[in-house]
Computed example of a mutant assay.
Amino acid sequence: MSDLDELAHVVLQRRRELARPIVVGISGYGGSGKSTLARTLVSALPDAVRLRGDDFLDPARVHRRSPDWDGVERERLVEDVLRPFRDGVPGEFRRYDWNLGRLSDPEPVPRADVLVVDLVGLFHPVTLPLLDLTVWCDLDLWTATQRGILRDRAEGNDHDRVWSEVWEPNERDFEERFAPRDVADVLFPRD
């Protein structure tokens, strides 16, 4: 059984145990493979949807140094999506539209058995109580940063300076303060 198959099994088992819609939080350093894992996991699960963490970033604050990834809009994520989803009640939320430079029009909170959210700085006291299963993309910071830089360059974005002066230091500070790897239920990949 592959690591992905094992993770899908763990997710389905947690869903059965809780007998309600569940939220799976995937976090890790920038460039660690969170989005790829989230997309792959959703495709391996019945009745699962993904919420892209980048939709909950403040474009100005995420480019500034902070000890707790201040640019992650956790309160908006919790109040607009995670609470309504877990409670099974209708709700609306707005994604940040990076092309338009503003929040998009409201859309309904998705309905499914499993909501997968992938985001840096996700394993924080504000969000952890609403995550039913936490998965850490277990890649060291240096390798993740290099992958992120290469990915951005391939997409035509020169973020090298932001990676070295903001995002990598933010990751170190967040790790020291909140120990996200240690609070994860699952490390992925297992080895």
Results as ranks from 00 to 15, higher is better:
Asp47Met: 09
Val11Thr: 05
Ser27Phe: 07
Glu17Arg: 13
Val11Pro: 03
Leu45Arg: 11
Arg20Trp: 08
Glu17Gly: 02
Arg52Phe: 11
Ile22Thr: 03
Val10Asn: 07
Phe56Pro: 03
Leu18Met: 12
Leu37Val: 00
Arg50Glu: 12
Arg16Thr: 12
His63Lys: 15
Leu45Ala: 04
Lys34Trp: 06
Lys34Val: 02
Leu37Gln: 00
Gly30Ala: 11
Ala44Glu: 13
Ala48Gln: 10
Val49Arg: 13
Val49Thr: 14
Arg14Phe: 04
Leu57Lys: 12
Leu37Trp: 04
Val24Cys: 04
Asp55His: 13
Ser27Asn: 10
Val23Glu: 05
Leu18Glu: 11
Ser43Lys: 06
Val11Trp: 03
Gly30Glu: 01
Leu12Gly: 10
Arg16Ser: 12
Gly31Ser: 04
Arg50Lys: 15
Asp58Thr: 13
Arg39Tyr: 06
Ser27His: 06
His9Ile: 06
Leu57Gly: 00
Leu45Tyr: 10
Arg50Tyr: 03
Glu17Cys: 06
Arg15Lys: 14
Lys34Ala: 04
Leu12His: 11
Asp47Ala: 12
Val24Ile: 03
Ser35Asn: 08
Gly53Leu: 09
Leu45Met: 12
Arg16Trp: 00
Leu12Arg: 14
Val10His: 10
Asp55Lys: 09
His9Ser: 14
Arg20Pro: 11
Gln13Met: 11
Leu18Arg: 13
Asp54Leu: 05
Leu37Asp: 01
Val10Lys: 15
Asp58Gln: 10
Leu45Trp: 09
Arg16Asn: 07
Asp47Trp: 09
Ser43Val: 00
Ser43Ile: 06
Gly53His: 08
Arg50Leu: 09
Arg14Ser: 10
Leu41Cys: 09
Ile26Glu: 06
Gly31Gln: 05
Ala8Thr: 07
Pro46Val: 12
Asp58Cys: 11
Val10Glu: 12
Arg16Asp: 10
Ala8His: 00
Ser27Gly: 09
Val11Leu: 02
Val49Trp: 10
Ala44Trp: 02
Pro46Ala: 11
Lys34Asn: 01
Asp54Gly: 03
His63Pro: 08
Gly53Tyr: 07
Gly25Lys: 04
Thr40Ala: 13
Ala38Glu: 03
Asp54Trp: 08
Asp54Met: 04
Ser43Gly: 08
Val62Asn: 12
Leu51Ile: 15
Val10Ala: 14
Arg14Glu: 08
Leu37Cys: 05
Pro21Tyr: 02
Asp54Lys: 11
Ser27Asp: 14
Ser27Lys: 02
Thr36Val: 11
Phe56Gln: 06
Leu18Tyr: 09
Leu51Asp: 07
Ala60Phe: 13
Pro46Phe: 08
Gly30Tyr: 02
Leu37Tyr: 04
Arg61Glu: 15
Val10Gln: 15
Arg39Thr: 11
Val23Leu: 07
Arg52Thr: 15
Val49Lys: 13
Ser32Lys: 03
Arg39Trp: 08
